Computed example of a mutant assay.
Amino acid sequence: MISPADYLETELLSPIKREYIAGRVYAMGEFQNRHNIIAGNTLVTLHARLRGKKCRPFNSDTKLRIRFPNHVRFYYPDVQVVCQPNSVDESFQDQPNVIVEVLSESTRRTDEGEKLDAYLTIPSLETYLLVDSTNKEVVVQQRGDTGFTRSVYIGDDGVIPLACLGFDLPLAEIYEGVQLPALEVVEAE
């Protein structure tokens, strides 16, 4: 078991990104270019719309700290938007308003399970986007009066309302220039 302070200290020197869950450290895998293009498009689109406003997007080099009653976790979301940022001297954020994870074969189960459960406990979180990297589909969890509601947006015409930020996010901009894999056609026997 490693303490959060030791994790943060050694993470600064680590040649690979590692996430921290309740005293254990897990190395992150590498991602395909498609994953990085989608994350980059999302970051650039959010940055352009947030220019001059108090909220700011952070890329996957910024950790997210989640404090639970009996442990702490640090994750590296693909993108997060924070309206009340930590000190510029920190290497993590505590109060994201929007979190974006790009789904890949190696991350889908964690992003849709463990991280979903953890992220939805963050009091400041308004929207969690799960962006598929194999087809134009984004699953969105948005906070409402009675908790989080799940919606699905599909195709180039899909537009995700980000009321907490005051603008919409078109799927066409998230997937701009992305070559998606061909869908397999399964024939009935």
Rank of each mutant, 00 (worst) to 15 (best):
G52H: 06
R108F: 00
K115Q: 09
F58N: 10
P96D: 12
A182L: 13
P96E: 07
P15K: 05
D145S: 12
Y7F: 12
E112A: 01
R73H: 02
S14A: 15
K17Y: 06
R49D: 13
I37F: 03
S151N: 14
R143Q: 11
L43V: 00
I99W: 00
Q141L: 05
K53L: 11
G144W: 00
M28S: 08
A118H: 13
R109E: 15
F92A: 05
N41K: 00
G40C: 06
E9L: 09
R150T: 13
A39T: 09
V178D: 07
I37C: 06
M1E: 15
V81K: 01
E19M: 05
I154F: 07
P123A: 13
K53S: 15
S91I: 12
G113P: 14
K17A: 08
F31N: 08
K115G: 11
H47R: 13
S151D: 15
F92M: 09
T127A: 07
E187K: 04
Q80K: 02
A163T: 12
R56C: 07
L46V: 04
N41T: 06
S87H: 07
Y76V: 09
I38C: 09
S124F: 01
M28D: 12
V79W: 07
T127P: 03
L165Q: 11
S60T: 05
P57H: 01
L130H: 02
F92Q: 10
G23A: 10
Q80F: 03
Q179W: 00
R56W: 04
V159L: 07
K54G: 09
C164G: 10
Q142F: 01
F92L: 06
Q32R: 08
V44F: 05
T42C: 13
V139A: 13
L171R: 05
T121C: 07
P57S: 08
E176C: 09
A27L: 02
K53V: 07
V102H: 04
D132Q: 11
S3D: 09
Q179C: 09
S151I: 01
F148H: 04
L46P: 08
S124W: 01
I66W: 05
E30G: 15
P69H: 01
T134F: 03
I154V: 15
S106W: 01
N70F: 00
H71T: 12
G23T: 04
L165P: 07
E173Y: 06
E101A: 05
R18F: 03
C164V: 11
I122F: 08
E90R: 07
V159K: 02
L130Q: 11
Y26S: 04
